[in-house]
Design a protein around this nucleic acid. Structure first.
Lengths: 205, 205
DNA sequence: CATTCAAGCTAACGGGTGTTAGTCTAGTAG
DNA sequence: CTACTAGACTAACACCCGTTAGCTTGAATG
């Protein structure tokens, strides 16, 4: 649940607690007094560290999203096999969801609580990530190793699978890595150009 | 976006507008004055139709969820082929998402805004639906027509794909039915017990 | 025509919200 | 030892929220 891993400073604790509360009760459902109480401080003291409630949201969302996106780039560099790239992409998404859900799952509710500039930056980052996935699907389609009826819709479907935060529990039977591997295998099998007999499809080229 | 399709009465319009606003801005992010304005009425007049803001949320969530769940039962009765049952289940989910997103997608934020009784009923309905999907997966596993490494996690993944509301646009290139069919084909292919060579899996029985 | 009542309205209340002003204190630099 | 400052605190402000009380109106009923 941590975001920037500065749990020793007060600023770090604020970000940590805020990320958790925003995730549980929503941005508007969390009051500065609750947040302060969670940090072990009075509400007014929060303003020694952040100029506004919205600024806290911005920090959490943007830091989380940047960390997520940079991590993708690092993770994918030097991997050239398309299947392995897809596998890593999926695992990374699931792991990010269980670490800092604010990264990949920006609800509309949070989006319109942001100022226009931050919102734009956030959307751009998200789009950049989706473009990576789109490109991957397009390449696999071009090389005819994957069956991709509609890139955009499939991209959204894959992202949808990876949003495990609403139901994931830390004490569950599977680790995030195991879940990610399972989904990766599932998706890769669905994508694979296989026995045409199996494709009793409802798509027409 | 409509919920109970009584758009002629004021009560119906309130439900209609509220469902849309709650979906866009969240329950707490929507004020009674905004809602009233959307209906074309003053805030106090809403209380001629509902005793409280929460009562409106309850109506929308429970009605939507009951309609969704009853629809599943109707849709699946008399279909006995497992693959076709799964297909219908997925299509129905996608269509429900584009019709009244409050049915299948109850966020935690909305859940803890409900009174305990309604929350319980809502969770029970959701669990009942998930049990249908679980059972379906279990049957397919038992009959050895599907490869199901972990029922619960796979169930959540399938549900995740179907949550199309955050990105679905009415003027998009595909209809909800087309999207549902695509996802159904995708999932059925991933589930199918196929060529073992393709299953370069990371699961160990 | 008189009565009733559903359903709109205005005005306001009590409480909670994000935020600010100003104060106090403990640790640090010179 | 003194001066300074970061960072906590108390008190309060201005505003917005859900909700209520009480009034008005216009259509339906007898």
């Amino acid at each position: 649940m941590k975001v920037a891993s500065h749990p020793q400073t007060t600023e770090g604790r604020i970000l940590e607690v805020a990320a958790e509360l925003f995730d549980e009760r929503g941005y508007r459902g969390t009051t500065m007094r609750e947040l302060a109480s969670g940090v072990g401080v009075k509400a007014a003291s929060l303003y020694n560290h952040f100029p506004s409630k919205q600024a806290i949201l911005v920090r959490i969302c943007l830091d989380g999203m940047r960390e997520f996106y940079d991590g993708v780039l690092v993770r994918l560099q030097e991997i050239h096999d398309l299947r392995e790239r897809m596998r890593q992409l999926i695992i990374w998404q699931v792991e990010a969801e269980t670490r800092s859900p604010y990264a990949t799952r920006i609800s509309d509710e949070q989006l319109d609580a942001l100022n226009p500039q931050s919102r734009r930056e956030l959307i751009d980052l998200r789009d950049s990530f989706e473009r990576i996935l789109d490109n991957l699907l397009n390449e696999g389609k071009a090389q005819e190793i994957w069956h991709v009826p509609h890139v955009r819709v499939l991209c959204q479907g894959i992202i949808g699978i990876c949003k495990v935060n609403p139901w994931y529990k830390t004490d569950g039977p599977l680790t995030p890595l195991q879940i990610g591997e399972m989904y990766a295998a599932f998706i890769l099998k669905a994508l694979a150009v296989g026995d045409p007999v199996l494709e009793q499809g409802s798509e027409r080229a």
